[in-house]
């Protein structure tokens, strides 16, 4: 025991370096693993408030452009609302409708392979993990975890993200993902080779993941290349969201999502 203590004293610096590296690694792994929520609950409010302050300054500088964009969006929405009211006679399908909640991104950068964004509001306003996030009508990401007033969002550009996309409104569907290299290109994999591809075609969400409703624009086709699996191609997709300009977002929640998820989990367990 005495020798052990002497060894520790003699190599105190190396042990301190290793200890700090171990602590840092544990913190980082926890942040990227399933057990990260406790730490986010503890310190997320500090980071959230500071980044919120910074975002307020930044958005103040861009009031003009943002107002113009919002005005244009309101006009489009009003037009769509009128068309829908005309088509349905004012009735809505309340069993499967999507609830939309306004919010804002307070911190988020583009280009990092595992960059998570900080947004508001959080749990107190009803935001829950698994809710989809929209920007300007385009798919932006999914809520990963929440603190009281803030939420952490995984954007489409995250190498751990897996999304469900469809070529055109009724075309072939596949898995949409990002490889972490070029922020302008995502990949739609698992598309059969015989499918006719046209540059500029829109890739829509399928709704299978219960994060986004079906038919939400996600990106446009930029090209394709042979997949590792024979008879399939991978499609290069340019995301429609301009991730560097995101400020005001909408959180989405599908009605009866928990019931649908439970049923899917039950189905997987049976298989």
């Amino acid at each position: 025991m005495r020798n052990l203590v002497l060894l520790a004293i003699r190599n105190g610096y190396a042990l301190a370096v290793l200890g700090l590296l171990g602590f840092g690694s544990a913190l980082y792994m926890q942040h990227h693993g399933p057990g990260r929520s406790a730490w986010f609950h503890t310190t997320g409010e500090i980071a959230g408030n500071m980044q919120d302050l910074r975002a307020d300054w930044a958005s103040y500088m861009e009031f003009g452009a943002e107002n113009e964009r919002l005005a244009a969006e309101v006009g489009t929405l009003r037009e769509e609302l009128l068309v829908l009211r005309g088509a349905t006679g004012g009735r809505l399908d309340s069993s499967s409708h999507w609830t939309v909640m306004p919010g804002a991104v307070v911190s988020g950068t583009v280009g990092g392979a595992r960059t998570l964004w900080l947004a508001k509001p959080g749990a107190l306003a009803g935001v829950e993990p698994g809710m989809g996030v929209l920007w300007n009508g385009y798919a932006l990401g999914v809520v990963q975890e929440v603190s009281a007033n803030f939420s952490r969002v995984m954007p489409l550009l995250h190498i751990d993200g897996g999304w469900s996309g469809r070529l055109g409104a009724t075309g072939a569907s596949g898995g949409l993902s990002w490889d972490g290299h070029d922020a302008r290109i995502m990949h739609l994999s698992g598309i059969p080779r015989h499918v006719y591809l046209q540059m500029g075609d829109t890739v829509f969400s399928t709704g299978f993941d219960l994060i986004f409703p079906a038919g939400l624009p996600m990106g446009v086709v930029e090209g394709s290349f042979d997949a590792e699996v024979p008879d399939f191609v991978d499609v290069r997709v340019r995301p429609l969201s301009d991730f560097s300009k995101v400020q005001h977002v909408q959180f989405l929640k599908v009605g009866q999502r928990d019931e649908q998820r439970q049923l899917m989990n039950l189905e997987n367990a049976v298989q």
Binding site: L20, F23, G24, S25, L27, H31, W39, G44, A47, M50
Partner: peptide
């Protein structure tokens, strides 16, 4: 390490700047 941890807490990048600081 402390400067890195403080930055981690302020920006929500837990552990990233701490490791780089060490």
């Amino acid at each position: 390490a402390a400067a890195g941890l403080a930055l981690d807490i302020c920006t929500g990048t837990y552990g990233l700047h701490l490791l780089a600081g060490v």
